[in-house]
Design a protein around this nucleic acid. Structure first.
Lengths: 168, 168
DNA sequence: TTGTTTGCAAAAAGTTTGCATAATC
DNA sequence: GATTATGCAAACTTTTTGCAAACAA
């Protein structure tokens, strides 16, 4: 397979979420499944527009909210607090290492962290512990660019909106 | 000592940050140092008002921004994206386990995670990796309350604004 | 004096809500 | 036919910015 990281990502249907099927939700789920990297609500909205689907931004937000409730997307935040969504691989809970320059996301092995968090729950007296781990850095491809003294290519990060495959 | 978790927390002065001393900054730093748990900008602003210090909310935001830049506060987000600040113990980078019910925060040993993150940086080809780890759960004190079927006491969490010592 | 800081008001950004209309089950 | 979803506009929250006046060094 060409994309091990996305193994297990499959088309969801509204029915899977216990919701009514509308063409809007169908379109949203389809575009989301095609996205390799994280997208924000408005990026997703833009992608839908580009695809010729005119869907209200509100509807996109509501769909993402429902997906989040159902645990079907991973959510990360950037430093401004806005959220980015990515359909979750079948395996479940995952964490990503994200390039602050180009937006590339890569799933990382977080077994160590997961086990640690479980132990923590037992030791601390806390129940129902959920964890969020955000890892941002500069990927190998971007490092030379940054080292060359160019300003952070944050704008390039918006290329995520294009959902192009940034993997080698 | 009665509060091992806060060992190393000390009064900062504006001078430590390379900034001019104003009574506003002094008051902000003092109230922040007295806070046991995380506070939001507006909570801090409210505390200052209660203390008789009339300081603009903008000023509070700017002070927190400067503290963050200088690495003098730990910052966490709640699920709505708002930020909460806490003066960082002298030891440096720390993570907290926070009760989603009452807002109690407890520093946790994250050495495992720190080492894992360092290894990750070496393996992944990513440079300059920063990590944020958020752990929320329900503390032992709140668990019975929740188990009793009462609604999450999220409003109580606003008691953090009172900076009362919620530790035993 | 000179550059920094303050505080107000206004802007900005992201997200949510109200409500009438439209579609699904 | 009853319920749920949509979409527009408006509200909302948190945070940032512009700018003139006040202040620290």
């Amino acid at each position: 397979m060409s994309d091990p990281e996305l193994e297990g990502v499959q088309r969801l249907s509204a029915a899977d979420l216990g919701l009514r099927r509308t063409w809007q939700r169908g379109a949203i789920l389809e575009v989301l499944a095609d996205c390799r990297d994280f997208v924000s609500a408005s990026e997703l909205h833009g992608l839908l527009s580009s695809a010729g689907e005119s869907i209200g931004l509100t509807t996109v937000y509501r769909a993402l909210r429902d997906l989040e409730r159902g645990g079907h997307v991973d959510v990360v935040r950037d430093e401004t607090g806005s959220r980015f969504f990515r359909q979750r691989p079948a395996a479940g809970h995952r964490h990503y290492l994200i390039c602050r320059c180009c937006g590339l996301s890569r799933a990382v092995d977080t077994e160590v962290v997961e086990r640690w968090a479980e132990g923590l729950m037992a030791d601390s007296g806390f129940a129902d512990v959920e964890h969020t781990l955000e890892l941002v850095g500069v990927c190998a491809e971007c490092s030379p660019t940054l080292a060359a003294g160019e300003p952070p290519c944050r704008d390039d990060a918006r290329d995520r909106a294009g959902c192009r495959d940034r993997r080698d």
